[in-house]
């Protein structure tokens, strides 16, 4: 069963880079809080990893939602809850 990795910091070295190294195919990534600043510069993801970004936190910061064709899925808080439930466990890399 796969893992949801939650990132809430804008600096990749504060969580994202470590997280990306230990993700497995089928895992999920969710950017929240200041983590949404990474949406525009997300490095290549490991195979079969779905990446999501929290809409409320994007909008709060004046960052455009990912457009059509983006690899990022936009979720609201209800979607955040659904993700936590859909994956077997979560890791908050704060």
């Amino acid at each position: 069963m796969s893992t949801l990795h939650i990132i809430n910091k804008a600096n990749a070295s504060q969580g994202l880079s470590s997280c990306l190294r230990v993700m497995l195919p089928g895992d999920g990534l969710l950017l929240i809080e200041d983590g949404v600043y990474l949406a525009a510069q997300l490095p290549a993801l490991p195979e079969a990893v779905r990446a999501h970004v929290l809409q409320e936190d994007l909008q709060a910061r004046g960052i455009a939602l990912p457009g059509e064709g983006s690899a990022l899925f936009t979720v609201d808080y209800a979607g955040f809850v659904a993700l936590v439930c859909a994956y077997a466990r979560s890791v908050s890399w704060s």
Binding site: M1, S2, T3, R21, V22, M23, R89, S90, V91
Partner: peptide
């Protein structure tokens, strides 16, 4: 490390 996480109930 990936295996440790995947083998956990909670992290």
């Amino acid at each position: 490390i990936a295996a440790l996480i995947a083998g956990s109930d909670q992290v």
